[in-house]
Design a binder for these strands. Structure first.
Lengths: 229, 229
DNA sequence: CATTACTGTGTCCGGCGGACACAGTTACTC
DNA sequence: GAGTAACTGTGTCCGCCGGACACAGTAATG
């Protein structure tokens, strides 16, 4: 598994040449997941778009779990190379880049959750985030915790704003808003603060990413100035 | 669907009495999910623990998606009733209560993602969070964004720290740490900052919730004092 | 008593991940 | 060159999943 993600394949000698490659499998899976959602990715489905049968895929990958891991690391890609910036601006752009990655491949939100084996690209993202915080006086643990908070925020904003193709609860933004409005209309008495908050916020949209990011970075700045000053 | 979650069932008249109840179904599902993970929850499995067959369940619930929604709202439960506190302490305790709920039912992290229909309990949590921020000078949209940031943080910390029973990548915390350490050992050159951050943070554990929470609340406090002062 | 509305059951379907035995292909070794 | 070992792709089979559907049994209404 680690070998798969990190590309340590043993040199092959005898036997027929493989008809396809692991990368081709992963790319096919990514294409399907992008257009039809992660649930549409099955061994059958992938094999159908390649000149092999389903079972041949198991010569390249031990199981579906590992395939999704390879797909995920390939899809996140390398973090964009940004010029040296002060930590705050560096982290802000880093967060937006990450958001873009999740927007390009919404299924990453499903596939990259919980404890899992990390691939080189995912680690590269972490590396870049931590790198932005070196020299700020924060401890290693604090640096890791900081980029974790930012990652969490980016993930959940992306989750809220992107429409999942083919996912079970395929609600459009409008449908969702409306059903929520209906509920709040009939149950306004039980949720007074929520109702007024929703009503006064109607119309202003998609500020969530910048808003939360600004709060988190403000909080970090406070801590950093405590440490350095 | 909305009717199911909000308990608006039409009065039944003729015909045999139902052998079970929707609540019993949901509770059975919750018990299974708690002990064996959400993936272990299937119609067969639930019916096996109740005096009915699989297909009888469809008399109570339209499909599995809706069942999981009912399970989720039942499992989050009502937010604990806390005394009136200043907004910062109120939100802090609110976040910890939420974390506890996710810890009690780790599968909620899987089932309550993305746009979905919200049940009364979930809305009650939101209501309480927003309520803590009324009177701080924040706009409705800002209040909602604020509790969203906190929720994101709580979720991802819970995701990282809890072990998913029966989930695909059933790695223990130690196994995960070790495999990551091995990778970093062999690839240290590619991830220098990450390597040192990891090394210096070894040992200090589980500060993630409090750390991120403190940063976010600090950032909110800054904004609020801007608004009020 | 007949009708009507309702509940639970059994059977069937397509699709899923995956185990396994098998046939075909290629390169190394004698 | 012949044999063999290593490797690749195929077809078949299994258990499980969510769910459609027809059907039989049951309870209240007329």
């Amino acid at each position: 598994m680690t070998e798969l993600l990190w590309g340590k394949e043993p040199a092959r000698t005898r036997g027929p040449k493989p008809a396809i490659t692991l990368t081709a499998i992963a790319e096919t899976g990514i294409a399907i997941a992008d257009t039809e959602g992660l649930d549409a990715v099955s061994m059958q489905r992938i094999a159908g778009e390649l000149p092999v049968t389903k079972m041949a895929l198991y010569r390249y990958v031990p199981g579906k779990t590992e395939l999704v891991a390879v797909m995920s690391d390939l899809a996140v890609g390398s973090p964009p190379d940004r010029a040296d910036l002060p930590w705050r601006e560096a982290l802000r752009i880093w967060a937006i880049d990450l958001y873009d990655a999740f927007t390009r491949h919404p299924w990453l939100l499903q596939s990259t959750i919980g404890r899992r084996l990390l691939g080189p690209n995912e680690l590269a993202w972490m590396e870049r985030g931590v790198a932005a915080l070196t020299g700020t006086g924060l401890s290693g643990g604090e640096q890791l915790d900081s980029i974790l908070v930012i990652t969490s925020h980016v993930r959940n904003i992306a989750q809220q704003s992107t429409t999942f193709p083919g996912h079970t609860t395929g609600l459009t933004e409008e449908d969702w808003q409306q059903s929520l409005a209906e509920i709040l209309a009939t149950e306004a008495a039980r949720f007074p603060h929520l109702t007024t908050a929703m009503r006064t916020s109607a119309g202003s949209e998609n500020q969530g990413l910048e808003f939360g990011l600004a709060r988190i970075l403000d909080g970090l700045e406070l801590l950093i100035s405590d440490r350095t000053g």
